[in-house]
Computed example of a mutant assay.
Amino acid sequence: MVALLLVLLLALVLFGAGFALKALWWVAVVVLVVWIFGFVFASAGESGARKRWFRW
C-alpha cells in the first residue's frame, strides 16, 4: 500500500514538473519574440546616434 502511494506521488510530481517545464518553454518563446520585435523596431526608428531600447 505504501509503495503504491509512493509511486502515485512520484508520478504526480513528475507530471507537475513536465507541465511546468513546458509552460516555461512557452514563456521563453514569448519573451524571445517580444525581444526580437523590440530590437527590430528600435533599430528601424533610430537616426544618428545608436540608441538602446532596453535598460540594464
Rank of each mutant, 00 (worst) to 15 (best):
V33L: 07
V40G: 00
F15D: 14
E46Y: 00
G38F: 03
F19T: 08
L24R: 15
V2T: 15
K51V: 13
R55W: 01
K22L: 13
V7M: 09
S43N: 13
L10Y: 07
L21G: 10
A49C: 05
G45T: 02
G16I: 00
L6Y: 04
S43F: 12
A44W: 06
V40E: 03
L14A: 13
V40Q: 00
V27D: 01
A28T: 14
V31N: 02
L32F: 15
V27W: 11
G45W: 00
G16W: 04
V34F: 09
F41H: 05
A44C: 04
A44Q: 05
W25G: 12
E46I: 03
L24S: 11
W25L: 12
I36E: 02
V34I: 14
G18Y: 01
V33I: 11
F15R: 12
I36S: 06
A42T: 14
L14Y: 02
L8P: 02
L4S: 06
A28R: 12
V33D: 04
L5T: 11
L21Y: 12
L5D: 15
A3D: 14
L6W: 06
S43G: 10
A11T: 04
L14F: 10
L24K: 12
F39W: 14
K51C: 06
F39S: 10
L21S: 10
W26H: 13
A42I: 12
L12H: 03
R55G: 01
G16F: 02
L5A: 14
A44F: 02
A49L: 14
V7F: 08
L10D: 06
A49H: 05
F54S: 11
F54L: 07
W26S: 10
G45Y: 01
F15E: 12
M1K: 04
W56T: 08
A20T: 01
A11Q: 08
W56L: 11
W35Y: 15
V7G: 02
L12G: 09
L8K: 06
F41K: 15
V2G: 12
A3Q: 14
R52L: 10
L24E: 11
G48E: 02
F39E: 08
W25M: 08
L10G: 11
R50P: 06
G48S: 01
R50W: 09
R52K: 12
